[in-house]
C-alpha cells in the first residue's frame, strides 16, 4: 500500500483522482409506460475520474437505477452526451455496448447473478470467454481473481455450496477479472446480513486502495458513507454531488 497518501480525518486513504473515465452531460431518459411518458432522468451531468470511489444515492423512483444502467452501458440515453474513456457511447449499437461492458465495466449485482450450475471458477471465467481468451489464460486469470478476494480454496464449489458473502466475493472476482475501468456495484450488500455486508464493503475499500474505480449504487446511508464522494439523485435530477462526510 502506498504510504505517501495521507489519511483523511476519518483515518481513510483518499487516492488522487486520475483522468476522466465517465463524462455525462445533460443526459435525459424517457420511458413509455402505456400512454404515460416517464422522465426517469431530466438532465443529469456528472464526471467520474479514475481512482474515484463514488456512491450514487436516492430514494426509489429517483432515477438511480436508470443512471446506473446508463453508466453500465446497458442502456443508452434519450438525449445528452455520454463519453466513456473518450468514446461516445450514447449512440452505440447493442454489440458495441456489449464489448464496452465486457472490457471496461465490472458488474456486481444485488442478487449476485451467478450461474447456478457452474463452479465459482467457471463463473469468473465468463467475461474472459466473451473477451475471446484461450482456456489456459482464462483459468489462470480467474484463479488469480478468486485468490484476490480470498476464495482461492473454494474455486471449484458451485454457488449453492457457498455462503451469501462468498457468492458476492465470487461476483466481485468476476467483475475484476477483465481489469475493467470501473466496477459498478448495484446494492452489493442488499441481500446480505449486516456483518457480511461490512466484510464486502471492506473488500471494496481494499480494491479501491489498490487503484480500482468503484461506483456503488445504494439507498443505504451506511453503505454510501464508505465512498469518498456521494451523488444524490431526486426526481431525475442531481440533488447534490460532493465528498462523503
Amino acid at each position: 500500500m502506498s504510504n505517501s497518501l495521507a489519511p483523511d480525518f476519518t483515518g481513510r486513504i483518499t487516492r488522487p483522482a486520475g483522468p476522466i473515465v465517465i463524462d455525462i452531460a445533460g443526459v435525459t431518459k424517457l420511458y413509455k409506460m402505456g400512454e404515460e411518458i416517464i422522465h426517469a432522468l431530466r438532465g443529469v451531468s456528472v464526471e467520474i475520474r479514475r481512482n474515484e470511489y463514488l456512491a450514487i444515492m436516492g430514494p426509489s423512483g429517483s432515477g438511480k437505477s436508470t443512471l446506473m444502467n446508463m453508466l453500465g452501458c446497458l442502456d443508452t440515453p434519450t438525449a445528452g452526451r455520454y463519453e466513456f474513456t473518450g468514446k461516445n457511447v450514447a449512440h452505440m449499437e447493442d454489440d458495441e455496448l456489449a464489448d464496452i461492458r465486457n472490457r471496461e465495466i465490472g458488474f456486481v449485482f444485488q442478487t449476485f447473478n451467478l450461474l447456478p450450475r457452474s463452479t465459482a471458477l467457471a463463473n469468473v471465467e465468463l467475461p474472459l470467454i466473451y473477451a475471446g481468451l484461450p482456456p489456459s489464460v482464462r483459468r489462470e486469470r480467474a484463479t488469480q481473481a478468486l485468490q484476490s478476494v480470498g476464495l482461492g480454496e473454494r474455486m471449484l464449489h458451485k454457488p449453492n455450496e457457498l455462503s451469501g458473502g462468498q457468492r458476492q466475493r465470487v461476483a466481485i472476482a468476476r467483475a475484476l477479472v477483465n481489469n475493467p475501468s470501473i466496477i459498478l456495484a448495484d446494492e452489493p450488500t442488499g441481500n446480505l446480513d449486516s456483518k457480511t455486508g461490512v466484510e464486502i464493503m471492506a473488500l471494496f475499500e481494499q480494491l479501491y486502495e489498490l487503484g480500482n474505480t468503484i461506483i456503488v449504487v445504494t439507498h443505504e446511508e451506511d453503505i454510501a458513507r464508505h465512498a469518498r464522494r456521494i451523488v444524490r439523485l431526486r426526481d431525475g435530477l442531481i440533488e447534490s454531488d460532493g465528498p462523503a462526510l
Partner: peptide, 9 residues
C-alpha cells in the same frame, strides 16, 4: 447477466 458481462447478440 451474460449480456452485462459482454455477451453479444
Amino acid at each position: 447477466t451474460r449480456k452485462a458481462l459482454g455477451a453479444r447478440r
